[in-house]
């Protein structure tokens, strides 16, 4: 099963829509609720990252009986130092975004913690590609 979602940078009011749709599908497939919740956390954080940092992005979801694989590709400022970005508490979010309670520097660590495999690559001034996988 495959799904694709467009994500608009800055559109906080729609953030979480793709995650919520995928979560519903996983529930219908009777995936273990604990695993569904892990995937939901990773999906949401990834979605919010695109909304908070990029101009626009695409989320592709590939689902089979054993696993879910998600790839997010965005056009945006990219990440200069991936190692730093992975540190809990590090964030480049704007004050406006922080006031909403985002930008705590926990998004990427949350994704890492809740997935079985995660790969983050980026070209500064072009965009970021995030790929993660969770086994059922």
């Amino acid at each position: 099963m495959q799904f694709e979602f467009d994500i608009q940078g800055g559109d906080f009011s729609s953030a979480g829509k793709a995650s919520s749709d995928i979560k519903k599908v996983l529930k219908q497939l009777n995936i273990d609720p604990k695993i569904v919740r892990r995937i939901a956390v990773a999906l949401y954080e990834a979605e919010v990252n695109v909304v908070a940092h990029a101009y626009k992005g695409v989320m592709k979801v590939d689902l089979d009986a054993q696993k879910i694989k998600i790839v997010l590709e965005d056009e945006g400022p990219g990440i200069e130092n991936i190692e730093k970005a992975m540190q809990e508490g590090f964030s480049t979010a704007t004050d406006e975004v922080r006031q909403m309670g985002f930008g705590a520097g926990m998004g990427l660590p949350n994704i890492k913690r809740n997935t079985d495999e995660m790969l983050l690559t980026s070209v500064p001034d072009q965009g970021t590609r995030l790929e993660f996988m969770v086994r059922f």
């Binding site: 909403m100 705590a104 926990m106």
Partner: peptide, 23 residues
């Protein structure tokens, strides 16, 4: 902090917050 809740809160908990936006 929304990511803090995403990371640390558990299902069936109540969430006390002063955030009032849709997210």
């Amino acid at each position: 902090l929304l990511s803090d809740v995403m990371g640390k809160a558990h299902a069936d908990m109540m969430w006390i917050t002063s955030q009032v936006h849709k997210n």
